[in-house]
């Protein structure tokens, strides 16, 4: 089955732009090609988890300081497409890779 467009989040989709499958933001900004992690095309903000608010405060700061909160924003409009709680230094999780047409998926 051939799809022209796949909605991923409210503002994030995969669609055909000039014959190429690209991740795009609702504002029209292109975040990158299908073959890459869309997060690479986002603006990243990495902050201490507890800086988010009291519901995240830790009683063991040493452990908590090894972790971070990542936010991935559209570099054009600033909308947030993804978040991650991650160990500092770990790669971004490549977590979403739908395909417009059926067939083999490349191993990541």
């Amino acid at each position: 089955m051939e799809r022209q467009r796949i909605f991923i989040g409210d503002n994030l989709k995969l669609e055909n732009i000039n014959g190429e499958a690209c991740y795009t933001c609702a504002c029209g900004n292109i975040l990158g090609p299908w073959e890459a992690n869309f997060k690479e095309g986002c603006t990243l903000k990495e902050s201490p988890i507890s800086s988010l608010g009291p519901g995240y405060a830790s009683s063991d700061p040493d452990m908590e300081n090894r972790m971070c909160f990542r936010e991935f924003f559209c570099p054009n409009c600033g909308v947030r497409h993804a978040t991650e709680v991650a160990r500092i230094g770990d790669p971004y999780l490549w977590d979403v890779q739908p395909k417009l047409s059926s067939g083999a998926v490349s191993e990541s």
């Binding site: 830790s58 452990m63 090894r66 909160f69 709680v85």
Partner: peptide, 22 residues
């Protein structure tokens, strides 16, 4: 008593809070 939040938000959402015992 999580040392850090373990929950992950969905597609731009905030993660859940920290489960604690104090």
């Amino acid at each position: 008593n999580d040392s850090f939040v373990k929950n992950q938000g969905l597609l731009g959402g905030n993660s859940g809070g920290r489960a604690f015992f104090k």
